[in-house]
């Protein structure tokens, strides 16, 4: 892996997928996210970087309303998915999460078979008409998750019996099985070794063809390797947001520069 290699892939002027305006997040009295404005493009990998506790994961979890499960969490401002406010009263978070899938920091397969792990989402959303349909969906998802070849002979084996990297790819496959439009990834490689990380990163690059991917990462190298857009968060503020190449080579903000050169964070 060439550290700090900037991915020079065409950054098209894709359509905006998610548009956040003046987003504020409070945990009880704590003001965790302040005035964040960001436009996330379709078919693009967007990386959120920043030191621990800067609010990047919190903001990510706002995008599919996972913060709803935390009682004391309060979100203000607007987050639009394809122009629709996801915090509108009429929006059912369950429907939203089918459109905006999520992969978590630690691989968290269900303690069920590999097949059932993937089939669970399509089943509850009624995506498959019959068993053959479902088999097809499972195979497609596992192929997209770049894990099909490793597990095709043991789909009945428990998902928890796989290695860490395999489990994470299984979780990615599970997330794409419901055909979401946006895929949120919360530090997906932080529990993985370098080889598994490489596999997951390659996978993320492939997923870009079909999804809009938002990834939170601690590793600046990773952000540089996989993303086309990068947002730098610091102390709850979105400090700088732009093309990855620009952020890493020519940051406008002093704090961004300090962070990527290793002086803060």
């Amino acid at each position: 892996m060439n550290d700090m290699r900037i991915v020079r892939k065409d950054v098209d002027m894709n359509d905006t997928k998610i548009s956040a305006k003046k987003v504020q997040v409070f945990y009880g009295e704590t003001h965790a996210i302040k005035d964040v404005d960001v436009e996330i493009k379709d078919k693009t990998v967007t990386a959120f970087i920043g030191p621990s506790g800067c609010g990047k994961s919190t903001f990510l979890r706002c995008l599919n309303r996972m913060n709803d499960t935390i009682d004391i969490c309060r979100v203000e401002g607007n987050i639009l998915l394809d122009g629709e406010d996801i915090y509108d009263k009429r929006v059912d978070p369950v429907q939203l999460r089918a459109k905006v899938g999520m992969v978590f920091q630690r691989p968290n397969p269900f303690p069920k078979s590999i097949y059932d792990n993937i089939a669970y989402g399509p089943r509850i959303h009624g995506l498959a008409k019959n068993k053959a349909d479902l088999d097809e969906i499972v195979e497609k998802a596992l192929r997209r998750g770049a894990i099909w070849d490793e597990v095709k002979d043991r789909l009945d084996a428990p998902g928890t019996g796989l290695s860490g990297g395999q489990q994470q790819r299984l979780c990615i496959a599970r997330a794409v099985a419901t055909e979401p439009e946006v895929l949120l990834m919360d530090e997906p490689c932080s529990a993985l070794d370098p080889i598994a990380t490489l596999q997951v990163e390659e996978l993320i690059d492939e997923l870009r063809e079909n999804f809009s991917v938002v990834i939170v990462t601690h590793s600046m190298q990773q952000a540089a390797r996989v993303s086309q857009k990068t947002a730098f968060f610091h102390l709850g503020n979105l400090v700088e947001y732009g093309d990855t190449e620009q952020i890493f080579t020519n940051p406008h903000d002093e704090r961004t520069e300090s962070y990527i050169t290793g002086r803060i964070g």
Binding site: N108, P109, F110, I124
Partner: peptide
């Protein structure tokens, strides 16, 4: 993490609990 996983693929609260 199990609840997160279920909610993350779009299960409702009740589905995540009962499934």
């Amino acid at each position: 993490s199990i609840r997160d996983a279920a909610l993350g693929v779009g299960a409702s609260k009740m589905q995540s609990v009962f499934h």
